[in-house]
Every structure is written in C-alpha cells, then in structure tokens.
Design a protein around this nucleic acid. Structure first.
Length: 423
RNA sequence: GGUGAGGUGCCUGAGUGGCCGAAAGGAACGGUUUGCUAAACCGUCGUACGGGUUAAACUGUACCGAGGGUUCGAAUCCCUCCCUCACCGCCA
C-alpha cells in the first residue's frame, strides 16, 4: 500500500498516476487524507488526555505511599472522570485507523514513468522479440496430443483424482518436469540467488503482505479449518521471509529463489485458453524474489529481466518481452515485464514469466525495512519474477521441438533429463 | 489430541502491581590507547504514531507473543487465541 505522507505531499501526481492505471475510484485519495486528518486529531486528544491520566496516577501512588488517603481518593475521582472522556475517543481512534487502513489497501500501486498508458493487453508494448518461429513438420500437433502420443501427461486421470485443471505427469513427462525444476534452480543459484523451500500454505498475514488479501481472496484455495491459504505463487511465502525485519543496507540486495507448486482457483476464467497445459489449477514454478535498495530497484529489475531472458535463450525457445500497459498491470506492481514464448503448434504466444518491481507497495504492508548507518529505517523495494512457470514451457518444448523421429530435448536439459530425445 | 512449563530488546537473560522502555552480560557500531590479524577502556546501541522545529533539540502516547479485561496505575493479575519446549497418545 501507498504511504499516506507521500499521498499528502504528491496528491496531484498520485491522481495522474492512478489515471495511467485506469483506476476509477479516485475519490479514495481525498477520503484517505480526510481519515488521516481525523486520525491525527484524535491521536492528539487521546495522547494529551492519557498523559494527564498517567501523571495523576503517579501522584496517586506517591500520596498513597505517604498515607494521604483523602487526597488520593479525590485524585482518583478526577482520573476516572478523564477516563470516561477517553473511552469514546479511543474507540473513535481505533475505528478511524481501521477505516484508514481499509481504504488505503483499495488504492493500487502507482505505475512507474516507464509504464505505457494503454488499457488492454493489445496495448502492451513489445520491447523485444528473439529467436525464430520454428517451421514445424507436417504431422505437427499441439502438446495435448503429444502428451497422449508419448504418454507424458494424463489430463483425464487428473479429473478422476481431483478435478479439471490438475494434470498428472507421468513417465518421461514427469521426468522432464523434474529436470526443468532442477535446471532452473541451478541456473538461479549460479546467478547468486539463495534457494529456499518454503511452505505451500500460508496464514492470513502473509497473504495480506504480498497483496493477495483482501481483494484476491477468491483466487486462492482456502483451508478453512486452519485458516491457511494454498499459495498461488512462491512470491507469497518467500517475500514474507523478511516480513517485520529491519535489514542493514549492506545486506541488500537479497536474492532468493524457490521452487513450489502453485495453486490457483482461476475463478471466472473458464472457457478461455484452458486447453491442455495452458491454464491449470496446480502447476509448478521456480520463482525469483529480490529485496533491493529503493535507489537500485530498477537496476535489479533489469538484472532479473536479463536473467530470465538468458534462461529462455538457453532453452532455445522463441520469446518476446512485453512491457505491460497501465490497464493490464497487476494491482500491486509499479512496472511489469511479461515474457511470452511462441507455441508453434497452437500458433500463439504463451505467458511464461512475469517480472515486476513492486517498489515499496508490498514492503509497506509487510514492514520490510533497512537502515543505513545512523539512518532511520526505510522501506525496501520488493521484486519478483518467474524463472520459469513450467507448464507452458513444457508445452512449447514439446510442440516446437517435435519431429517425425520424436521430441528433441534442449541441450541444457539433457543431462538432467538423462536423454536427448523423447521417442 | 491430552498434560505440564514457557514466550521480555539483535542474542542470552533479570524483572510478579507504581521507582521499568525495561538490570546485567554478549553481539554490533563509533572513538581512545596499545599494536604480530587481537585486547583494554569510553561512548552509542528499539520501533511506530503525534506535538514541536527550516532541520534538529525537545516533548507526548503506545508497544515486554497477539487481542481483550481488572485497576487511579499492568511486562507483572484475569480471559481468549497463536507459538515454543517437555512428556504421553497417534502417525509419515
């Protein structure tokens, strides 16, 4: 969430930037400032009255110790009077603080100046395209057919065990999946990221911290008995590792990577691009998370983009990089680059990675801060990106690398996979 | 799941109603001195939100797992929840 003092000092700029995101409820800005004024006023009243209570209470203690009971009793009556006045003030203050927070989380993050102004996915800006679109042989088919032909993935079996969108990987399909996870993690570790294996269920506080709660609650699976949420991405548990911590500036940047399954209800997205691996409820992903100094977070973003790019290049997949426009960006992001790989058999681009800078939007929720020598604590910037989401990479490798003699495995994966081909 | 003991600052750890935002030790940081990769000594050493100031200084409130309660006054008493440890039960 945004910081109130920032909103106060830059109100016009905030409104301009909200417009880039096509955010309509701009009245919230004034509401926030009004609530903050109210909060300050009530705080002042509460603090002053409580200060009187505190000092009188101390005197009562002294009087009682000296045996001056009557004076003490008189003062006690006075304190009780003050406290009667205090109760409604305190109540109003708590209610105002809650309302302020509730309103504040309704404001999205502000877009960086680099964000294009568009509204729809068509208006995203292609920053780069790399690699040749492969010309497939005549018998080429989409990955769901290949999965059957080579016995790699069983979609129907997933229906039986759980429901739609829970594919079962088997044989070489399972092994290829595992090979990719291993390769991606190794690749990230070599680039200086520390590996974590975090929990796949998180509590409410963690889900709030990265911005999944309160507004995206319907997208997560909820284990109601214990009030835990199944993670929609490793971003949630990994970023929360440093929740409520104050780091030293010398510890930044912090680079973390984690493999986890991801669980997404995908409510409301039925019927669109759901065939095969294109959209599933459970999938595997290797994630990158960085905590960076505010002045260096855009360098970190570029570094992550370059990192994901080199990873895709090593897999020899044709890809393009999009800079998302204001209307297509996520609520919490300040700048996002999407990576898409080209699926030759489906003849379309599939998103496989999304790399974003959240600036201090998440860290303000999580209170992840750092301190320079003799300085005050300030918020870090958080970033994350996929490296990579597995299903669509799998789909593209199967489709783009299919030949009459089998499916060619990218050279960098062969050692992990244990063969050069699926036949 | 049951029973018992606990949760205090970066760490260890004292504190069972006012003198406690909190002893002491350690770590860390700054300095002095000596100087074979170190010791001794001195100092600093929480956070948030207000007031105040050009900025400071200064000052108020809150925070001793979380939330509530009792009291003139709570780290300290009571309740609920969360977590940790030990033992028992169950179990990969």
């Amino acid at each position: 969430m945004l910081q109130v003092p920032y909103i106060r000092q830059n109100k016009e700029l905030v409104l301009e930037k909200l417009a880039v995101k096509h955010f309509k409820e701009t009245h919230l800005v004034d509401e926030i400032l009004a609530l903050d004024d109210k909060r300050k006023k009530l705080t002042l009243e509460y603090d002053d009255t409580q200060a009187q209570v505190n000092s009188l209470s101390k005197e009562i203690g002294k009087l009682m110790a000296q045996g001056k009971k009557e004076d003490g009793e008189a003062m006690r009556a006075k304190v009780n009077e003050l406290k009667e006045h205090l109760a409604p003030v305190n109540e109003a203050l708590n209610a105002t603080e809650k309302e302020l927070l509730d309103t504040l989380v309704k404001l999205p993050n502000l877009p960086s100046p680099l964000v294009p102004p568009g509204k729809t996915p068509e208006e995203n800006v292609e920053v780069k395209q790399h690699g040749d679109i492969p010309a497939l042989y005549e018998g080429a088919v989409p990955h769901w057919d290949l999965a059957k032909k080579y016995d790699l993935i069983d979609f129907e079996l997933g229906n039986k065990i759980t429901g739609s969108g829970f594919p079962v990987y088997k044989n070489k399909g399972a092994r290829l999946q595992r090979a990719m996870i291993q390769y991606f993690l190794d690749y990230n570790i070599n680039a200086g990221y520390m590996e974590y294996a975090p929990p796949y269920l998180v509590n409410e506080t963690s889900a709030f911290g990265t911005g999944q709660l309160p507004d995206k609650e319907g997208q997560m699976y909820h284990a109601t008995e214990d009030n835990f949420y199944l993670i929609p991405t490793a971003e949630v548990p990994v970023t929360n590792i440093y929740r409520d911590e104050i780091l030293k500036d010398t510890e930044l940047p912090i680079r973390m990577t984690a493999y986890t399954p991801c669980f997404r209800r995908e409510a409301g997205s039925y019927g669109k691009d759901v065939r095969g691996l294109n959209r599933v409820h459970q999938f595997d992903k290797v994630e990158l998370v960085q905590l960076a100094h505010p002045e260096k977070s855009y360098e970190a973003l570029d570094e992550m983009v370059a990192h994901v790019e080199s990873l895709l290049q090593s897999l020899q997949l044709p890809y393009r990089i999009l800079r998302l426009c204001g209307g297509d960006m996520s609520f919490t992001s300040a700048l996002t680059y999407d990576f898409e790989v080209y699926s030759a058999a489906q003849q379309k681009w599939l998103e496989v990675s999304s790399v974003s800078n959240f600036e201090s939007y998440q860290s303000n929720r999580m209170k992840i801060r750092f301190k320079e020598a003799n300085g005050k604590p300030q918020l870090v910037h958080t970033l994350n990106g996929s490296s990579l989401a597995l299903p669509r990479i799998m789909a593209c490798i199967l489709e783009n690398n299919q030949t009459a003699e089998g499916i060619h495995i990218p050279a960098v994966l062969q050692a992990y996979f244990g063969a050069g081909k699926i036949q």
